[in-house]
Amino acid sequence: MPEARTTTPRERYRSQVRAEVKEHAWEQIAAAGASALSLNAIAKRMGMSGPALYRYFDGRDELITELVKDAYRSEADAFRAAAEAGADLAGLAHVLRGWALDDPQRYFLIHGTPVPGYRAPDDITEIAAETMAVIVDACAALPPDGTATAFDTHLDTHRRWAGSRPAPAPALHRALSFWSRLHGVLSLELAGQFTGMGFDPALLFAAELDDLLGR
């Protein structure tokens, strides 16, 4: 077994600074949104010059990429751990809601309005696909829920988004419904759109999930 690589004091310091920068970035996002992210403002908070901070991040897009990557990685790991523990589709739905409520800013960074002028690199798309793969597998494990629809037929030849998962088209349809409907409820809840309406968003989420599962 190869020996673990020992980091140098400089590498550890660099890692610590980058972690602190990301903490301040999350604070900025919580206060004004990702589009207002400013490395110069973060440098000022940390008592550094702007040019000094650019030794740790090349620019705003690299910082956003790190934050987005961390968020997708966290979500994918939560789904994978739940699936490995035996969670079914209903269990995964509750993992999604718990993960979203735990950190709404993290949720909105990857599932909210795209940051103007920013395009995520392909490796982030690959991480996001890990979560969908878990959902597709859970949907494929359920019994068929009726006759094929026109959209099922469409998905027979439009399934690139599902990667190499060997799921039938109705399972892919259910996976997309799971993703879009539950994210719709979560996005509205976290944005405060249900405030003052007098009902429990958790019960709405559960009702949508029951409908998806044909209960």
Rank of each mutant, 00 (worst) to 15 (best):
A19W: 08
L172F: 03
A206H: 10
R106F: 08
A140W: 00
G59T: 04
W179I: 03
W179E: 01
R215A: 10
E130I: 03
L188C: 11
P168S: 13
H94L: 05
C139Q: 10
T8W: 04
L209N: 05
R10F: 11
L204E: 06
T8K: 05
L190T: 03
G192K: 12
V185L: 03
L182Y: 13
M1E: 05
V136D: 00
D156W: 08
T7K: 09
W99R: 01
Q193R: 13
E66T: 09
A30G: 15
L96S: 02
P116Q: 11
D88L: 06
V115A: 02
E23N: 05
L67K: 09
T147S: 10
G214T: 09
L101E: 11
L67I: 15
T8Y: 07
W179Y: 07
E11W: 10
G98S: 13
I127A: 01
A128S: 06
L37N: 09
D152L: 10
E23D: 10
G33A: 08
F199H: 09
A34S: 12
P51C: 05
R18Q: 13
V134A: 06
A148L: 14
R174C: 06
P170R: 14
R159N: 15
F108P: 00
Y13A: 05
G198Q: 08
I42C: 12
P51M: 06
S164H: 13
L188F: 14
R215M: 09
D61G: 11
L186A: 04
D61T: 06
A100E: 06
P168Y: 04
A202R: 12
L186P: 00
P143E: 00
